[in-house]
């Protein structure tokens, strides 16, 4: 379990996160939502030990993340950053680099690493694109390739920063289904999301961040009922219990 306790993060005198507590269990899918600039990406980076924390602590499977090396964290948590670059290499080569944290200098990928990468390609339906250069893939396929790389990393947790950005709706839903399958298979997934109906529809829990603080951390049903979404985002989120999906109530919003 990733356990964030009373986390405080700031840049200089500016406080970005204040007294943030939440947890991510294996096999669960947590979506982190909030308006722009509220500290969602900072929260992910703090969990990954990429930025210094001012107060509180983060425990990854019981160990303080501040005491773990970058390599140790990368063997436990995979991370897909926002606005990924498009490296000029084939899909197969990129996915194989998911094994990077498991090797030490001079890093040379073994037959076993190649088998794990091939399985990750298989799982994401990318086997036939193994030799395809990444720049020639569509945005959705590239995102899938990054997911495959994180699978090859064989971590218990995957953190994703706005994974559905720039994808068309078909690819957004396909990606969310993949993430849901991953959490059902035992991985702990945390994703920063802007599309609320998608986040609520696929997640086990929603963490609502507002002005650097956790406004609510609960199941999608309870968050939806709390009416906090309307207060923070200025839009009403409703649940269609017959069809079982979340939607924006445009009438209430307009």
């Amino acid at each position: 379990m990733i356990d964030v306790r009373n986390l405080g993060v700031g840049y200089g005198k500016t406080s970005v996160l204040c007294d943030v507590s939440l947890s991510l269990e294996k096999g669960k899918f947590v979506s982190i939502i909030g308006t722009n600039g509220t500290g969602k990406s900072t929260l992910l980076k703090a969990i990954l030990g990429m930025i210094e924390i001012n107060s509180g602590e983060i425990l990854v499977d019981g160990a303080k993340s501040a005491e773990l090396s970058r390599g140790e964290i990368a063997r436990k948590i995979a991370y897909l950053a926002q606005g990924k670059s498009v490296p000029d290499m084939t899909v197969g080569q990129m996915v194989l680099h998911g094994r990077f944290p498991h090797l030490s200098y001079p890093r040379r990928y073994s037959e076993n690493d190649r088998k794990i990468a091939a399985a990750a390609l298989e799982q994401t339906g990318l086997s036939e694109y193994k030799e395809t250069p990444l720049p020639s893939l569509s945005g959705g396929m590239r995102q899938n390739a990054y997911i495959a790389m994180s699978l090859a990393q064989q971590t218990d947790y995957v953190l994703l920063d706005e994974p559905t950005s720039y994808l068309d709706i078909t690819h957004q839903i396909r990606l969310m289904k993949t993430l849901r399958e991953l959490s059902d298979s035992g991985k702990g997934i945390a994703a920063v999301m802007h599309d609320l109906p998608l986040a609520f529809g696929f997640s086990d829990k929603i963490a609502v961040l507002n002005e650097g603080k956790i406004a609510l951390f609960d199941t999608p049903e309870n968050v939806c009922e709390s009416k906090i979404i309307g207060k923070i985002f200025g839009v009403e989120l409703k649940y269609n219990s017959t069809e079982k999906y979340y939607f924006y109530d445009m009438k209430a919003t307009l």
Binding site: S69, R75, K84, S85
Partner: peptide, 11 residues
């Protein structure tokens, strides 16, 4: 070449 954050994410 994956970019700063993704490279850090790989340890």
């Amino acid at each position: 070449t994956f970019g700063e954050d993704n490279a850090k994410g790989l340890g």
